[in-house]
Amino acid sequence: MAISKSQQFFESLWYRKTVWWLWVFWPFHLLLRLIVWLRRSFYRKGLFKSTKLKTPVIVIGNITVGGTGKTPLAIYLIELLKSQGYKPGLISRGYGGNSEHYPLTVTESTPASESGDEPFLIRRRTQVPVMVDPIRARGAQELEALGCDIIVCDDGLQHYALQRDIEIVVVDGNRQLGNGWLMPFGPLREPQSRLKQANHIIVNGKDMVLEPNSIQAINHHNSELKEPITAVAAIGHPERFYKTLDSLGYQFERQSFPDHYQFSKQDFESFQGSILMTEKDAVKCLSFADERFYFLPVSAKLSKPFLQSLMEQIKAITHES
């Protein structure tokens, strides 16, 4: 199921100067701002339950809909923590996945259709405990029981039912915050003022860059890419993937799917030549990928000032705990 033209149209409105007729919905925008403010206030005042763990929690998230680079940042942060002697674990909602039971401990044999693509990818890349649970506090407590001494919460900025010690917000350096309106009239989950309350703001493309690694075959065969090449992406911002391939000199056709789309073998029956995917999409094709399937892994690189500031804060909260 490729992205529909209507979906493309409405998303394009978010990232350009606000069209005149959108102002008709200004009262709804104000109502949404009020709802967002009330919800957070209720958590802050204790009217809604919020769990505080003994283990420090680092939340990685954004205030916009769609991809900003959170998953590569989570992988980088986990590897950094491991190198510093910590025992990190990751808790995720598991968007796009559907399991019969939670908390779900993600293993190499867990289907990505159950765990969600991002938790499966993070587990595969880092080999740390990864827990999936819609009730993140419950899943995080499972990580504590497994011996994790610091917990990374993936895409949990708006999940106030789990208290956090550090907040890292990722912003797309190209698209920024779009037209500045809240969903569904714009891309914002929370008002722009929310950024002032975060501990760290990472601008993807400035403070963080995503460096492409070597293209790999999904099933580890030795064949080389064959033309024609179809680039397939089911991520929040497919254009970032396509621009990366452009910069590497590849000629290809584009085929976008909805974010977190669960692929099947039938989706690719009509494709000729090679199929080149993101790593997040590739993990959903492990069971049926043939010699046509390849993926491009990327790695996050962060600025030294951010890393220094972050590690100082991590050492402070782990010492306190």
Rank of each mutant, 00 (worst) to 15 (best):
R16P: 10
E320P: 00
L34P: 01
F293N: 05
S247N: 15
I63M: 07
I60G: 12
R33H: 07
E142H: 09
V36M: 07
L77G: 02
P56I: 13
W23Y: 15
L121P: 01
V203G: 00
T230Q: 10
G61S: 10
R124V: 03
R16F: 03
I91P: 14
I151F: 05
G61K: 13
Q7L: 07
A282T: 00
D155E: 12
F10E: 09
Q158P: 12
R164K: 14
S83N: 02
W23K: 15
S303C: 10
Q272P: 09
A198V: 06
H29L: 06
K196W: 02
I122L: 14
D267P: 05
R189Y: 00
V57G: 10
N62V: 13
R40Y: 01
L30G: 09
R175P: 12
V232T: 10
F257W: 04
G249P: 09
F241D: 14
M311D: 02
S83Q: 09
N62A: 12
E239H: 13
K54G: 12
K5T: 12
M277N: 00
G139H: 05
L32W: 15
Q197G: 08
Q255H: 09
M277H: 04
A316H: 13
V65L: 13
G85A: 02
D267A: 02
T126W: 04
S303D: 11
L77T: 01
T71E: 01
G147L: 08
I229K: 07
G186E: 09
L182M: 11
I63R: 14
G236F: 03
Y242H: 10
E144H: 03
R194D: 14
Y86A: 04
G46W: 08
Y76R: 09
K87I: 07
V232K: 07
P88H: 05
Y250K: 13
I91D: 14
K54I: 11
P56G: 12
I58K: 15
H200T: 00
M208G: 02
H29N: 13
S264W: 01
L121W: 05
R164N: 08
L210V: 00
G205R: 00
Y15I: 03
H159Q: 14
L307H: 04
E312L: 08
D246G: 09
C148L: 06
G147M: 02
G46N: 12
F42E: 10
L38N: 11
I314A: 07
L90F: 00
A145K: 15
F293Y: 08
L53P: 13
D117N: 03
T68D: 05
V59C: 15
Q8G: 03
I150P: 04
Q8I: 08
K315C: 03
Q163R: 12
S287H: 06
D117A: 01
W21K: 13
L13F: 08
V171M: 11
F10K: 12
Q313P: 11
F241Q: 14
T64Q: 08
L121F: 04
G249N: 06
E142I: 03
T244C: 14
E11H: 07
G156P: 13
S247Q: 15
W20R: 15
G97Y: 02
K49I: 11
G94Y: 04
K45S: 11
I215H: 05
K196Q: 14
